[in-house]
């Protein structure tokens, strides 16, 4: 379980997170929504100690993530908005291997994890492809595979669908469904709920650094326009 307690984080003169409390149980498919500047990205970057709280705590199964960032970053895989800026190698398999290499695993284990991760996103045949030659949707899937190779319990995706066309979007979402069905917790940060609200278990809306809505997506939809988020049914 990821547990966030009374988290505060200031950037310049702004309270980006203003005493936020939230917990996400294992295996949940959770949407994190809110207008720009509501603190979504800042919040998830605390989950794996990419940011350090001013006050408050973030724990994963009881361990404070700032005490053990390696465990936090292994258990919580993160995929960012601009896949092209997060790849470290020119070819697919070399990039996916980067995380496991940092864990110091032996080569056979790394190869096994790369193969499993690429199979999970249906890119098993593209191991030796050049990343820049892939489509946007395939690049997003390579980024997901890079996170999966750490064998995380949770996958956090920050605006993973921006700039993808409809088929690529559907394909990425279908792969997330399959991972969720296998028990991986999925946390999607987004301001666009189209195609997402039927898939998730839970919707958490942020505004000004606080949780203002926490419900099942079906229950939450009617309240969204008041929060400045488009109702995906319209």
């Amino acid at each position: 379980m990821i547990a966030v307690s009374d988290l505060r984080y200031r950037y310049g003169d702004v309270d980006v997170l203003d005493g936020l409390t939230l917990s996400i149980p294992d295996g949940q498919y959770c949407l994190l929504v809110g207008p720009n500047g509501s603190g979504k990205t800042t919040l998830v970057r605390h989950f794996n100690a990419l940011l350090t709280p001013d006050t408050g705590t973030v724990t994963v199964d009881g361990t404070d993530v700032t005490d053990d960032p390696v465990v936090a970053r292994t258990r919580i895989g993160m995929v960012f908005q601009h896949p092209r800026d997060q790849f470290v190698a020119a070819t697919v398999a070399a990039d996916v291997a980067f995380g496991p290499e940092n864990l110091g695993l032996d080569r056979d284990e790394i190869d096994r994890r790369v193969e499993t991760a690429l199979d999970a996103v249906d890119l098993g045949g593209a191991a030796d492809s050049r990343i820049d030659a892939l489509s946007g949707g395939e690049q997003a899937r390579v980024a997901i595979a890079g996170a999966l190779a750490m064998e995380p319990d949770y996958l956090v995706l920050d605006e993973p669908l921006v700039g993808l066309d409809w088929p690529a979007r559907e394909s990425v979402l279908d792969h997330l469904d399959a991972l969720a069905a296998d028990g991986t917790g999925i946390i999607v940060v987004t301001h666009d709920l189209r195609d997402l609200h039927e898939r998730a278990d839970r919707l958490v809306a942020l505004q000004d650094g606080q949780v203002v809505l926490d419900a099942s997506p079906a229950e939450a939809l009617d309240a969204l326009p008041d929060l400045g988020i488009r109702d995906p049914r319209c």
Binding site: P69, V70, T74, N102, L103, L105, E109
Partner: peptide, 10 residues
């Protein structure tokens, strides 16, 4: 095989 405790983060 190295364990995860030995990872020396930059």
């Amino acid at each position: 095989m190295a364990t995860e405790q030995s990872v020396d983060l930059v």
